[in-house]
Every structure is written in structure tokens, then in C-alpha cells.
Simulated scan of single mutants.
Amino acid sequence: MSRYRGPRLRITRRLGELPGLTRKSARRAYPPGQHGQNRKKRSEYAVRLEEKQKLRFNYGLSESQLLRYVRKARRVTGSTGQVLLQLLEMRLDNTTFRLGLAPTIPAARQLVNHGHITVNSKVVNIASYQCRPGEVISIINRDKSRQMVETNLQYPGLANLPSHLEFDKNKLEGKINSVIEREWVALQINELLVVEYYSRMA
């Protein structure tokens, strides 16, 4: 399955608030579709599937990408669910979004792909690049790039900067001080259900 490029509000109506996917909120509080208002009781599989879909759509991953992250998280010591969230949160596109340089993760991915973002003064155009503590994220020294980011900073996607990041608005420069802690993950999700969903295939 490739990355989702359809209507985003339809997804947020079905799965709930996804801060990385869109800043818009749905006017209708029930899921889309003919039977959105009178859904039957969901099975355990449906609950796990929904949590997995939240993760996939919020971070803009394909099914195979998410499966790779789950397998990678399993090889690391510690809670698989927490390691999985840390791997996703430390991606360059998500870090760019959390610094406020872009209003959503898809917008941050575009900034990265188009060569506007530098890591330790080198242009990195791979959205899935894993950021590490000590690295400095900044904007390439081009007027167009800086103007774009300055506009985005006026309307950040999330108001609070996570504790593992620091940002200098004058230099348009962010620094990663540590790996993100679980409490600063903005997405409301039960990561254990995602691990359980993949337990048969990962």
C-alpha cells in the first residue's frame, strides 16, 4: 500500500484527531459512511487495526514502512511500543514539524524532499532520516526557503515544543538534545495494540 493522498478530514473523522496529518477539525463528530452514526460493537481485531491506522496516517507511512519500523523496534531492548514511537518521532520530517517549521508532517516532508532543510549544515533530502541527539536542524541559506519557514512559524501545527528539542527563532535553527520521551508524543494512541496487531507477521 502506498502513502495516503486522499481527503484528510475523512481519515480524521474515522480515526479521531491526527495532529501530524491536518490542522483542520471535522464538523461532524461521527465517522463517514452510510452507517457512521450507528456503528456496531467493534471486534478486538478492529480496535487494533484502528490504532495501527492512526500511526500510519499520522506519520505518513506506507504499510511496508511501518512493518519495517516494528521489526526494527523489536530488535532494540526495552518496550517495543515505546521504541517504535521514538523511531517515528525522530524521523527528520516529524522533527521538522515538531520544531514548527511546517504546519503538518506532509508539509514538512515536502520541505525536506525539496532540499530546504539541513542537518549539521549539510542538506538532507530524505524524510525518513533518523535524527540523533546533538544534531542541529536548520534552513538552507536561501531567501525563498527562509521566507517560507518564517510564514509557517506564525502558524505552527503544535503549540508546545517537546522537551528534547530547542529552537532559535532568530537563526531558524533547532537542536536535538535527547530522544523524545513518551509523554511528549502528541498522537493519542495505545502503541501496545499496534505491536499486538503486527505480532503475527513481524
Rank of each mutant, 00 (worst) to 15 (best):
I180G: 08
R5M: 09
R28E: 13
P31S: 10
A127N: 01
Q154I: 11
I180E: 01
L66M: 15
S145W: 02
E51T: 10
A202V: 13
A46G: 12
N58G: 04
N120I: 04
L85T: 05
Q34A: 13
L92N: 00
I117Q: 02
L18W: 02
A26I: 03
S79N: 14
G78K: 03
E17M: 10
G81P: 07
H35F: 10
V76I: 15
L193G: 09
P19E: 02
Q37G: 08
Q37N: 12
V123G: 02
R3S: 08
Y197P: 01
E183G: 01
A46Q: 15
R98M: 06
E196N: 07
A73Y: 06
S2L: 12
A186F: 10
V76D: 08
R75N: 10
G81I: 10
D93K: 04
I180Q: 05
V124R: 05
L55A: 09
H114A: 03
E166A: 13
L165R: 09
K24T: 07
E191I: 13
E63S: 09
L111H: 05
R68E: 13
A102P: 07
E51Y: 07
R42E: 13
F167Y: 15
D168E: 11
Q53T: 06
L9R: 09
H35G: 13
S121H: 12
M148C: 11
V76P: 01
R8Q: 14
L172M: 15
E51K: 06
G115A: 08
K175M: 08
P19L: 01
T80D: 10
L85G: 01
T77Y: 13
L99K: 02
S128V: 03
Y197Q: 11
V195Y: 03
D93P: 00
T80A: 13
R98E: 03
L92G: 05
K52R: 14
A186N: 10
V76Y: 05
S199M: 08
Q188Y: 08
Q34N: 09
L158T: 08
L165F: 08
M1V: 10
T12A: 01
L165Q: 06
T96A: 12
Q188G: 08
